[in-house]
Measured scan of single mutants.
Amino acid sequence: EDEVKKIVKRLIENGVDDEQIKEIVKRQGVDERIVDKVLKELK
């Protein structure tokens, strides 16, 4: 989960929008619920 957080944070800093972040992270095989949780925490 910490790995996911790092990735998502980097994507947000690069101006990637939420939908794209979800797609990218899902392609890495991460559960969507984890992605949603991380996005909420970082906003």
Rank of each mutant, 00 (worst) to 15 (best):
Arg27Cys: 06
Lys5Phe: 10
Lys37Trp: 08
Lys22Val: 09
Asp2Phe: 07
Asn14Ile: 13
Ile7Asn: 04
Lys22Phe: 10
Lys26Ala: 11
Lys9Glu: 11
Val30Ile: 15
Lys9Val: 08
Gln20Ser: 13
Val25Asn: 02
Lys40Trp: 14
Val8Leu: 06
Leu11Glu: 02
Gly15Asn: 06
Leu11Phe: 04
Val35Tyr: 04
Val8Thr: 02
Val16Lys: 09
Lys22Pro: 02
Glu41Gly: 06
Lys22Glu: 02
Asp36Tyr: 06
Asp36Lys: 07
Gln20Asp: 11
Lys37His: 06
Arg33Cys: 06
Asn14Lys: 14
Lys43Thr: 07
Glu1Leu: 14
Asp36Leu: 13
Lys6Phe: 09
Lys26Ile: 14
Asp31Gln: 06
Arg33Ala: 14
Glu41Leu: 10
Val38Asn: 01
Lys22Gly: 02
Ile12Val: 09
Asn14Asp: 14
Glu32Leu: 11
Lys26Glu: 05
Gln28Ala: 13
Val38Thr: 03
Leu42Val: 07
Lys43Trp: 07
Leu11Trp: 02
Leu11Met: 07
Val8Cys: 05
Glu1Asp: 09
Val25Ser: 03
Asp17Glu: 10
Lys40Arg: 14
Asp31Ser: 11
Lys40Val: 07
Val35Leu: 12
Leu42Met: 08
Gln28Met: 15
Glu32His: 08
Asp18Gly: 06
Val30Leu: 13
Val35Ser: 02
Leu11Lys: 01
Arg10Asn: 14
Gly15Thr: 02
Val4Lys: 01
Val25Asp: 00
Glu32Arg: 05
Arg27Pro: 02
Asp31His: 08
Leu42Gly: 02
Val16Met: 15
Lys9Pro: 00
Val38Lys: 01
Glu41Lys: 05
Glu19Arg: 09
Leu11Ser: 01
Lys5Leu: 09
Glu3Asp: 11
Gln28Ser: 12
Lys5Gln: 05
Glu41Asp: 11
Leu39Met: 08
Lys6Arg: 14
Gln20Ala: 13
Gln28Asn: 09
Ile24Ala: 04
Glu13Ile: 08
Arg33Asp: 13
Glu1Cys: 06
Leu39Ser: 01
Val25Cys: 11
Glu13Leu: 12
Ile12Lys: 12
Ile24Arg: 04
Arg27Ile: 07
Ile12Glu: 02
Gln20Trp: 07
Ile12Leu: 15
Gly29Lys: 03
Glu3Thr: 09
Glu13Trp: 08
Ile7Ala: 06
Lys26Trp: 05
Arg10Lys: 14
Val25Gly: 03
Glu1Asn: 08
Glu19Gln: 12
Gly29Met: 03
Glu41Thr: 06
Ile34Ala: 04
Lys26Gly: 11
Val8Tyr: 01
Ile12Asp: 01
Lys43Leu: 11
Glu1Val: 12
Lys43Gln: 10
Ile7Arg: 06
Gly29Arg: 02
Glu19Asn: 10
Ile7Tyr: 11
Glu1Gly: 05
Asp36Asn: 11
Asp18Ser: 10
Glu1Trp: 15
Ile21Arg: 00
Val30Arg: 03
Lys37Asn: 05
Lys6Ile: 11
Glu19Gly: 08
Lys37Ser: 06
Lys40Phe: 12
Lys5Pro: 01
Glu32Ile: 12
Leu39Cys: 03
Lys37Ala: 09
Lys37Val: 05
Ile12Ser: 05
Lys43Asp: 05
Lys22Asp: 01
Val25Leu: 15
Gln20Lys: 13
Ile34Leu: 13
Leu39Glu: 00
Gln28Gly: 09
Asp36Trp: 07
Val25Phe: 15
Leu42Asn: 02
Val8Trp: 01
Val8Gly: 00
Glu32Gly: 11
Asp31Tyr: 04
Arg33Phe: 13
Asp36Met: 12
Glu1Pro: 07
Lys9Phe: 09
Val8Pro: 00
Ile24Ser: 03
Leu42Trp: 05
Arg33Thr: 12
Glu3Pro: 04
Val30Ser: 03
Lys5Arg: 15
Glu32Ser: 11
Leu39Pro: 00
Ile24Asn: 02
Ile21Gly: 00
Arg10Glu: 15
Leu11Tyr: 05
Asp17Tyr: 05
Glu13Pro: 01
Gly29Phe: 04
Gln20Tyr: 08
Gln28Trp: 15
Glu19Ala: 13
Lys9His: 09
Val38Arg: 00
Lys40Ser: 11
Gly29Gln: 03
Val4Tyr: 02
Val35Gln: 00
Asn14Leu: 15
Asp31Trp: 03
Gly15Tyr: 04
Asp18Phe: 14
Lys5Cys: 05
Leu39Gly: 00
Asp31Asn: 08
Glu23His: 08
Asp18Glu: 15
Ile12Met: 15
Val4Gly: 01
Asn14Ser: 14
Val38Trp: 11
Asp17Val: 08
Glu1Met: 13
Ile21Thr: 01
Val8Asp: 00
Asp18Thr: 12
Glu19Asp: 13
Ile34Asp: 04
Gln28His: 13
Lys22Leu: 11
Lys6Asp: 12
Val16Phe: 15
Glu23Pro: 01
Asp18Arg: 10
Asp36Pro: 01
Ile24Glu: 04
Lys43Ser: 08
Leu39Trp: 03
Lys37Arg: 12
Gly29Tyr: 03
Ile7Gly: 02
Ile34Glu: 05
Lys26Ser: 11
Val4Phe: 04
Val35Asp: 00
Lys6Pro: 03
Glu23Phe: 08
Glu13Phe: 09
Lys43Glu: 06
Gly29Leu: 03
Val35Lys: 00
Leu39Val: 03
Glu23Ile: 13
Lys9Ser: 09
Lys22Gln: 04
Ile24Met: 10
Lys9Ile: 12
Ile34Phe: 06
Asp31Met: 05
Lys37Phe: 06
Glu1Phe: 14
Glu41Ala: 11
Lys9Gln: 14
Glu1Lys: 07
Val38Gly: 00
Asp36His: 07
Leu11Pro: 00
Leu11Asp: 00
Glu41Phe: 08
Asp36Ala: 12
Glu1Ala: 08
Lys40Asp: 08
Lys5Glu: 05
Leu11Thr: 00
Glu13Cys: 04
Lys22Trp: 07
Asn14Glu: 15
Val30Met: 11
Glu1Arg: 07
Val38Asp: 00
Val16Ser: 05
Glu3Cys: 08
Glu32Tyr: 08
Asp18Trp: 15
Leu42Cys: 03
Val8Ala: 03
Gln28Thr: 13
Arg33Trp: 15
Glu3Gly: 06
Glu3Trp: 15
Glu19Phe: 10
Glu41Tyr: 07
Asp17Ile: 07
Ile34Ser: 03
Arg33His: 13
Ile7Trp: 15
Asp31Lys: 04
Glu13Asp: 12
Lys22Asn: 02
Ile34Lys: 03
Glu1Thr: 09
Glu13Ser: 09
Glu32Lys: 06
Lys43Pro: 03
Asp17Leu: 10
Lys37Gln: 09
Ile34Pro: 00
Arg10Asp: 14
Arg33Gly: 11
Glu41Ile: 09
Glu32Ala: 12
Glu3Tyr: 14
Leu11Cys: 02
Ile7Pro: 00
Gln20Phe: 07
Glu3Leu: 11
Ile7Ser: 04
Glu13Tyr: 09
Glu23Asn: 09
Ile12Cys: 03
Lys22Ile: 12
Glu23Ser: 09
Glu32Pro: 14
Ile21Pro: 00
Lys37Cys: 04
Ile21Trp: 01
Asn14Thr: 11
Val35Pro: 00
Lys43Tyr: 10
Val38Ser: 02
Glu13Gly: 06
Val4His: 01
Ile12Gly: 02
Gln28Glu: 08
Leu42Asp: 01
Lys26Leu: 14
Asp18Lys: 09
Asp2Gly: 08
Glu41Arg: 04
Glu19Cys: 05
Asp31Arg: 03
Leu42Pro: 01
Val30Asp: 01
Glu19Ile: 10
Lys5His: 07
Glu13Lys: 11
Ile12Tyr: 12
Arg33Tyr: 14
Arg33Lys: 13
Gly29Thr: 02
Lys40Thr: 09
Arg33Ser: 14
Val25Lys: 00
Val25Gln: 03
Lys6Leu: 13
Ile12Phe: 10
Glu19Leu: 11
Asn14Tyr: 12
Val16Gln: 06
Leu42Glu: 02
Val16Ala: 09
Val30Lys: 04
Glu3Ile: 11
Arg10Tyr: 15
Asp18Leu: 14
Val16Pro: 00
Val4Trp: 07
Ile24Lys: 03
Ile24Tyr: 10
Gly15Gln: 04
Leu42His: 03
Leu39Asn: 01
Leu39Ala: 01
Gln20Thr: 15
Ile21Ser: 00
Ile7His: 06
Val16Cys: 08
Val8Asn: 00
Lys26Arg: 13
Arg27Ala: 15
Ile34Thr: 10
Gln20Met: 14
Lys5Gly: 03
Asp36Ser: 09
Glu19Ser: 10
Lys43Arg: 15
Glu13Ala: 14
Glu32Thr: 08
Glu23Ala: 13
Asp18Gln: 10
Ile21Asp: 00
Lys9Thr: 08
Lys37Ile: 07
Lys40Ile: 09
Lys43Val: 06
Val16Tyr: 15
Asp2Tyr: 09
Val35Glu: 00
Gln20Glu: 13
Ile12Ala: 06
Val16Gly: 02
Lys40Glu: 11
Glu32Val: 12
Gly29Trp: 03
Val4Asp: 01
Gln28Tyr: 15
Ile21Tyr: 00
Gly15Arg: 04
Glu41His: 06
Ile24Gly: 01
Glu23Gly: 05
Ile12His: 08
Lys9Arg: 14
Arg10Met: 15
Leu11Ala: 02
Arg10Ile: 14
Leu39Phe: 06
Glu19His: 09
Asp2Ile: 08
Gln28Pro: 02
Val16Thr: 07
Val16Asn: 07
Asp18Pro: 14
